[in-house]
């Protein structure tokens, strides 16, 4: 069952990769050295990446219910 929340990456990502290292589900990757991308299917919304992100660009969002 998918979690209620997922991590979303904002516009100020510096692609440092610190979120990739802490993600327990390996749900984050760095897209061509430009920004982090989250695989929503894998993301369990634990918030570790949000706490680690130095640029404060990762936020937890609620999944849309019933889609």
């Amino acid at each position: 069952m998918a979690s209620k929340r997922y991590a979303a990456v904002g516009n100020h990502c510096v692609a440092c990769g610190s979120c990739v290292k802490v993600c327990p589900m390996s749900a984050i990757s760095i897209w061509r050295g430009v920004a982090a991308r989250v695989d929503r299917e894998k993301c369990v919304g634990c918030g570790k990446c949000e706490r680690e992100c130095p640029a404060g660009t990762i936020t937890l969002k609620s999944r849309e219910v019933g889609v």
């Binding site: 692609a15 061509r32 050295g33 430009v34 920004a35 989250v38 929503r40």
Partner: peptide, 16 residues
């Protein structure tokens, strides 16, 4: 390096 990568790859795809 991020600037160089952005020049090469463009803007990242829209999430989701």
């Amino acid at each position: 390096t991020q600037w160089i990568c952005t020049l090469r790859a463009g803007k990242p795809p829209v999430e989701g």
